[in-house]
């Protein structure tokens, strides 16, 4: 475990150089179980630092627009747009803003960005550094869907939720997998609680490391869960092919309930960067 946590930190060459000696000492002191799967994801395969003001890079991001079916299957209340009011890059960040307004029959607007058809990858480290909105009914998420979703449908394609947060719980995030036999309310999920910080007051790094037969869940440098085929109550669908990423801010729905009179609008989800690494 320790090597994995450390390896996660060792992303840049600089840090590798500085800590290389310590790392090697620790590794040499460690006797990993023979069955443990350890893969290093050190090669950047996609990154968006959101340094160019304006609309997000169209070569990396596309959008879901509208309300989907039944609020994207979750009774969500927002209408997703690609308007700059709802999604913009500025100040070195991607900003997704949920607004309370009457728009196309919905009471709220927000945005949902996807890399579908633009960037898809099997295995690797997927991470985003984010500061989240707050207030009941806010449902920010960073997640992955199997790229074969249009052929075999959800949940057979698999879904990896890197980070979800309910705005009424500013110290709790969760990571999950959905697949055949363990989707929606039966997803395999684990919460992580911040004991001395919050999701809406500071940026945190939310990430997974996904390899053959395992998905490790991280918040900052803390590995808080590992999900393997033994943990799921159905077929393991995460060795089959590439996944694409989604970042969205939903309003209302099944995860945190609907906003109440204390929910302050507008609310913004700030994304400092999204980085994806693959194995050497």
């Amino acid at each position: 475990m320790k090597t994995k946590i450390l390896k996660n930190k060792l992303k840049s060459i600089l840090i590798c150089t500085v800590f290389g000696i310590g790392f090697m000492v620790l590794v040499s002191n460690c006797n990993p179980d023979e069955t443990q799967n350890v893969t290093n994801f050190n090669t950047i395969s996609m990154q968006d630092e959101f340094d160019v003001d304006g609309a997000p890079n169209p070569a990396m991001w596309t959008y879901d627009i509208g309300t989907g079916n039944n609020g994207w299957g979750n009774n969500e209340l927002q209408y997703y747009t690609d308007r700059p009011e709802n999604v913009v890059v500025e100040d070195g960040m991607l900003k997704i803003t949920a607004i309370q307004e009457d728009f196309e029959g919905s009471g709220y607007t927000s945005a949902r960005l996807l890399t579908q058809g633009l960037f898809e990858q099997k295995y690797g480290r997927f991470e985003a550094r984010m500061k989240l909105p707050y207030g009941k009914g806010m449902w920010p998420a960073f997640w992955l869907l199997g790229a074969n979703i249009d052929e075999i449908s959800w949940p057979f394609c698999g879904e990896i939720d890197v980070m979800e947060n309910g705005g009424s719980k500013p110290t709790i995030v969760s990571g999950a997998v959905h697949g055949p036999g363990y989707s929606a309310g039966n997803a395999i999920v684990k919460e992580y609680e911040f004991t001395d910080s919050r999701v809406d007051s500071e940026f945190h790094i939310y990430g997974i490391e996904w390899g053959p037969n395992y998905i490790n869940y991280y918040v900052d440098d803390v590995l808080y869960n590992q999900i393997t085929p033994e943990d799921v109550t159905g077929d393991w669908v995460f060795n089959n092919g590439p996944f694409f990423m989604i970042i969205n801010l939903a309003v209302g729905g099944v995860f945190d309930g609907n906003p109440n009179e204390n929910t302050v609008f507008p609310q913004t989800m700030y994304v400092d960067y999204v980085r994806v690494y693959s194995a050497n």
Binding site: F194, D196, S197, R198, S201
Partner: peptide, 8 residues
Amino acid sequence: ESLGTLGQ
């Protein structure tokens, strides 16, 4: 206490 968990 220094909680770090207060916000907004």
